[in-house]
Structures are given as structure tokens and as C-alpha cells.
Amino acid sequence: MATKKFMYLNRKASYGTVYAIESLEVVLIAAAFEQDVSLAFIDDGVYQIVEGQNTDGIGMKNFSKTFHALGDYDINKLYVSAESLEERGLTADDLMPLVYEDEDDDWEEKPSVKVVSNAELSKIMSDQDVCLSF
């Protein structure tokens, strides 16, 4: 099967609407098809991977923990819009330290999250075969 480049575009925060968790579920299902998958977080989507989420008070599943599993599913390209972070007073240090083990480099642990400018993101997007918006 020819590999295609899939990008999942996440633009909503996690718990107010179902977009974020739906996106994550689709990503995990699609991971079984061994395509080239990347995730982009822009606008309020950046809140999906902010460190320190605690959903005890709202009775919902804290699926931010699930992002830590993405490395096991060979999903290790998570692009975050620098402008969206900045607008919200956030920095890369506020994000979860998501990592993957690099098969080609003696399973060394490497960061999956990359903060990029909108211009860089636009270039990455135009390189995709399919973009799915959530």
C-alpha cells in the first residue's frame, strides 16, 4: 500500500466540544493503516496538549494522557503554531513533554512536539496528501 501523508488539523480545546477527542480517536484508528501521520495544533487546539490537565471536577475522561501513547503508534510529528501559543500567553514549556523512541537511532527518546511558525506550518500543510480538520 502506497503511503500517503495525512495531517490532522486540531483547532478546538478539549472538553467544551467533542472535536478534540473525536480527532484523537480517528488518529488512533488510522494509525493501524501505517500511513505518514502528522498532527497540527492551532488556535485553541493548542490547549489539547497543555501540561497539567485534571478533569476530576467535570466528570470527563482526561484524554490528554492518551497523547503520551502516540509515540507507540509511530505518530511523532506534532506541530504547534507558535503564533497561537503566543496569543494565549503560552510557551513550549507549558506543553506536555511528548516523546517517541526512534527506531533508527537505537530507540533513543526524542521529542514529538515541534513549535513552528504559521509560515512553516503552511509549508508543511502544502506537502500533505490529505488534511483532516477537527
Binding site: 488556535d43 503564533e83 504559521n118 503552511s122 500543510m125
Partner: peptide, 15 residues
């Protein structure tokens, strides 16, 4: 919504 603005932020020269 800010959908249009987000699109304009991410658009390249040929889109």
C-alpha cells in the same frame, strides 16, 4: 468564528 482568519494565517502563496 475565526476560521477565515486561521485560514489566512496558514495559507501559502499559491493556495
Amino acid at each position: 468564528r475565526n476560521s477565515l482568519q486561521s485560514c489566512l494565517n496558514a495559507i501559502d502563496d499559491t493556495s
